[in-house]
Design a protein around this nucleic acid. Sequence first.
DNA 1: GCCGCGATTCAACAAGCGTTGAAGACTAGT
DNA 2: ACTAGTCTTCAACGCTTGTTGAATCGCGGC
Lengths: 214, 214
Amino acid sequence: MSSKSQTTKQRILDAAEELFARDGFSAVTVRQIMKKAGADVALAYYHFESKRDLFDAVLMRRAEVMNDIRHAALDEVEKRHPDDAPSIEEIIAAFTNPLLDLLNNDHDHWRHYLALIAQVNSSPEWGGELMTRFFDPLVRRFIDAIRRAVPNAADEDLYWSYHFLSGALTLTLAETGRIDNLSSGLCRSSDMPSISARLPQFVAAGFERLCAKQ
Amino acid sequence: MSSKSQTTKQRILDAAEELFARDGFSAVTVRQIMKKAGADVALAYYHFESKRDLFDAVLMRRAEVMNDIRHAALDEVEKRHPDDAPSIEEIIAAFTNPLLDLLNNDHDHWRHYLALIAQVNSSPEWGGELMTRFFDPLVRRFIDAIRRAVPNAADEDLYWSYHFLSGALTLTLAETGRIDNLSSGLCRSSDMPSISARLPQFVAAGFERLCAKQ
DNA sequence: GCCGCGATTCAACAAGCGTTGAAGACTAGT
DNA sequence: ACTAGTCTTCAACGCTTGTTGAATCGCGGC
């Protein structure tokens, strides 16, 4: 467990993350990854069991951190409201803004990772199972918080509302450049402050109309 | 151009559509497609120039029909309101419900096709360019209709709102089974009536709050 | 100086890939 | 019966794929 090996393993993960995010699992070659990582092909199989295992490792690496910061954001919202219920918009902002902040502040690592998550989320092959395994506890807690803010909401409405939120957030994280083309450059996929100012408002209004209607 | 060839070409397109939708472009083999279509491998290259060309043909085949029914739905909304402006929810329903109706009424063809579109939409490789080529005219007309319903809306808010709508709709069309898992079976990805009853409301509320504020 | 051991390299494997050319079959018009 | 043209089959090409086993490097402990 020398420090050199740690570095190599991480360089492999970094390279894989970027390529998987851009082209998807099957379109990327182990040789491409190792070339980008600057290491021999066989090293991929020394550090990981298989290509699929490397893919899982890429997903796992940041999943816990990602969940932690979102849990912390929800913690803080609940701490701010020891007696009354927080507003729906506050709760949703705690769910979305930690990710948008990552994209705004940090290196490209999170940008690639979140684009990968976005792609996995809308893939029939992995969207159902993988996302459930990774995010269910957090999402359940998040929905519970909203349920407390809108006590008479029907569960079906809550779940569907969350699904719409998930889709809106996910497409945004993918940063495909679609909105840049559509708006002729007026809006930019990477303009996270613009998004944090709009997405929680938009989604909160949807939740309120759908879930709070008597 | 005998009738037999038409049938074969369509069987190839059908098989490709289903497999591309499930596994993505690169994960699918021309041999897999032709096996499912019940035809020789070489026929793929007689009827289409390349694997990539076949993929494009799959996308093109239903694109025009898809755009036409959505244009027709918008036509009807505008015809219903010759003087006053239609409500935002009506406009959005004209954008989303034609697709949801296809999934509700029809064979699996549209189910596979729309799942494929959903996947393409959130792929960085194709999401920006392909979606722009296919859907920009319709989307521009749709945004114009909303702009007339909310005269003081800022263009940036309109574009971002549309982007969130696109994400919510897209993830829904993907039918990944995610919501089935999350809700422990209470909600079903394939339950289109439930979605038509909720998505337009949810999204309209978002548009109204974001675009109509002052 | 040698050993042990993790990290790395090299060369190769069988299988599968997208794609092609040439030859056969089928149908329609003469 | 012959031809022209579309459609289909078969066998193969060169190349890339994921993966592996054996050999080599480099370094800390004895």
